[in-house]
Amino acid sequence: MLEVQGLVTNYGMIEALKGVDISAAEGRITCVLGPNGAGKTTLLMTIAGLLRPRRGSVTFEGRDITAASSAAVVHQGLALVPENRLVFPDMTVRENLVAGAYTRLARNRGEAMADLDRMLERFPVLNARVNANAGTLSGGEQQMLAVARALMTKPRCLLMDEPSLGLAPLIVAEVFNIIRELNEDGVTILLVEQNAHMALTVAHHFFLLDQGLVAFDGDPGAMAEDEVIQRAYLGSAGG
């Protein structure tokens, strides 16, 4: 569904991606692991159209979106839940969700508003604080809001950048439950994580990114057996 080939992207002066090939299969949860500075965020930002690659290509559902603007990427059905959530702090929860439906408001306002109500039903935490400014929400609530806002674009594929970052373990479990539910609803997910243990519970396929290159590509079984990953990500005792 999503194919990334030979992607080379600079982040500032640094070559953050040095020729990355990954893919996300339709209906699956694909996880990209890697240490800080491996280029995970750069990868997602390039796919989403926020950064321009120097070389390589991004293909989504057979269409080339390498040079597409972020708005065009959203329009194609690909949404990114950014690192650190990046909610609009001085807008209410409802307004944040309306912003998510921005591209659809002009075409079909009624449908977008119906989706908004459905989204609030699905995330009771957000419904409870629908008129509060997003900046006053807790970290977990902001993560839910960031996910809900991305879903308002009606994506067929959701990119998620470290959704567990800075959240309490209980909230992390809740976020991963939502990831699993979304996937069961048919949304393809490309997840970037540092929390390998949690990722192992949901993902169908893994990539390991290290210093801008893919260092591992395999299913969870192969990953749990890989010695390097064992030591670096799952602890010596094993997964």
């Binding site: 708005a71 329009h75 990046l86 609009f88 806002r149």
Partner: peptide, 9 residues
């Protein structure tokens, strides 16, 4: 950045 991700030019 988030505005762009919502498709806002």
């Amino acid at each position: 950045a988030a505005a762009q991700l919502c498709g806002i030019g």
